[in-house]
Amino acid sequence: MNKRYYLIYDLEKCIGCHNCMLACKDEFVDNEWPGYTLPQPRHGHKWINIQRIERGQYPHIDVKYLARLCLHCNNAPCVEAAGGAIYKRQDGIVIIDPQKAKGREDLIKTCPYGMIWWNQEREIPQKCTFCAHLIDQGWGKTRCVQACPTGALRLEHASEAEIERMKKDEKLEVLDPEHNTSPGVYYKNLYLYNKCFISGSVAIEKEGKTECAGGARVLLLHNQARIDEVLTDCFGDFRFDGLPANSGLYIIEIYFDGLLKKSVEVDLKTSLNVGTIFL
């Protein structure tokens, strides 16, 4: 069975150290890998780019990262448009031919993910090669994967069936599936990037003091349906995550000591900290 290379990136495991981007620069800046790519310019290119994502408002916020790189798509629009200047190898790696692609600035626009970079000095388009020159020497991993301290990035050499299983078991997703390019890079916990949360704190008055209402039951309702339910933690905090942005009105119901104490309506545009709700 034909196996190909896939890169899997877990947003939950990424600490944002940027080791991947730095390892990429270490490997490609000032180094030419004949047949694979010319050197990466010292400035400007980020073949793997780490984007910081911040959701929510002080003090309920969330900071995660998203790795963006060439997705080595199966239906790669760049390959289609390049007339042989960009090709897909048997093992799934998409390579820009440094000779044939000379002068082809037009190819930059073919990538719907914006992951082809223009090298002004050499007049060539460039991008992530999945470290094909190392893979072909038997390295077994890319530089970014090797430098990642937490395993947030991993390279898989897998058959169609194996990757399908991983997708199912680990709930892997592709980035912006509307592009229909059948990418070879999969994301885990992508909701941290493309979904929203509603959070808040619940407090009560007790013997003249404000106390955190731990253990309160908090329900989330949307379109008259109950869609989620959580208990507040010892700080009275609750959070519902994985909600689509701009998805309209939600009702938060708070039950304490078995009784419905408060109901709050919110219009969800982006991640939202509703603040402290006093019962």
């Binding site: 150290c17 730095l22 301290p149």
Partner: peptide, 15 residues
């Protein structure tokens, strides 16, 4: 072993 970002930037600092 693991490395920090600035360890991976050494080539650019040497040159």
């Amino acid at each position: 072993t693991t490395v920090t970002p600035y360890a991976l930037a050494w080539k650019s600092m040497v040159y």
